[in-house]
């Protein structure tokens, strides 16, 4: 069973302590996430920024319970997911966390609509047509619903992947470059929606991004380098984010 955290920390949506992940062994070992401690508050859009290879993607994979940490713990709300068995972990992935993959990972044999509805089917969650229609309108994918992923552009696939992550109304959304393939206008629309979700629905969003403008939509930016959190920016602007990134450049191995 999941271990419970103290009540005082209940306002934290996601928490990690001593989180570590190393790839390879011996001299070839690379520590992608190195004893990371972090707290993601509820109802906040958090951006994770850092240079390429800094371990951002590995971090969000570990936070979402998609990968196994070598050491450390992760709590989603009050549940320590690093202590969960396969079945309970699957429930967390299906009902509590929504994930947007960098490579979308849409199922090629399913239509866009079936891809969006997949988490509901997997987890036996009833479909909310109003919510579905709202997502489709917001993401502008009404015309793509019957198309297969390989018939869509990268941007269209990304919107479908975002819709799929949001369809179950998860408490936490983790997104790896969710606007990487979108134009400026579409990015702005989606980021505004994510921020709105955080504020109005108490949803927590953690997104990995390279785009300072996208990061400026966040309530907080975590600066990540060499597998560690090297600082954060509250109420960021594109300029403050760029400055933070410039400072990281000197730190990277």
């Amino acid at each position: 069973m999941a271990k419970k955290t103290p009540t005082a920390e209940a306002a934290t949506a996601l928490k990690a302590r001593g989180l570590t992940k190393t790839y390879g062994s011996g001299e070839a070992a690379v520590t992608a996430v190195d004893h990371v401690d972090l707290d993601i508050p509820e109802g906040v859009l958090t951006a994770v920024m850092g240079p390429s290879g800094s371990g951002k993607t590995t971090l969000v994979h570990l936070l979402a319970g998609l990968d196994r940490a070598d050491a450390g713990q992760v709590w989603v709300g009050e549940d320590e997911i690093t202590a969960l068995g396969d079945k309970q972990l699957a429930q967390v992935r299906g009902r509590v966390v929504g994930f947007v993959f960098q490579g979308f990972n849409l199922l090629q044999t399913m239509s866009a609509k079936d891809n969006i509805l997949l988490p509901l089917r997997l987890n036996g969650i009833p479909r909310d047509d109003e919510w579905l229609d709202g997502l489709i309108d917001m993401l502008g994918i009404g015309k793509e619903l019957s198309r297969k992923p390989y018939e869509m552009s990268g941007g269209q696939q990304q919107r479908v992947a975002i819709a799929r992550a949001l369809i179950t109304r998860p408490r936490i959304v983790l997104a790896d470059e969710p606007t990487g393939n979108l134009d400026t206008h579409a990015s702005a629309e989606i980021l505004a929606h994510l921020r709105q979700s955080c504020r109005e629905l108490g949803q927590s969003v953690v997104m990995v991004t390279h785009d300072p403008t996208a990061a400026s939509y966040a309530g907080r930016v975590l600066l990540f380098v060499n597998g560690r959190v090297d600082g954060h920016i509250t109420d960021p602007t594109p300029a403050s984010v760029l400055a933070g990134l410039d400072a990281l450049a000197g730190v990277q191995r």
Binding site: K87, Q91, R93, G94, P119, L122
Partner: peptide, 10 residues
């Protein structure tokens, strides 16, 4: 793997 990530049971 994608289905596992979306909540399918092992």
């Amino acid at each position: 793997a994608t289905m596992a990530a979306l909540g399918a049971t092992p």
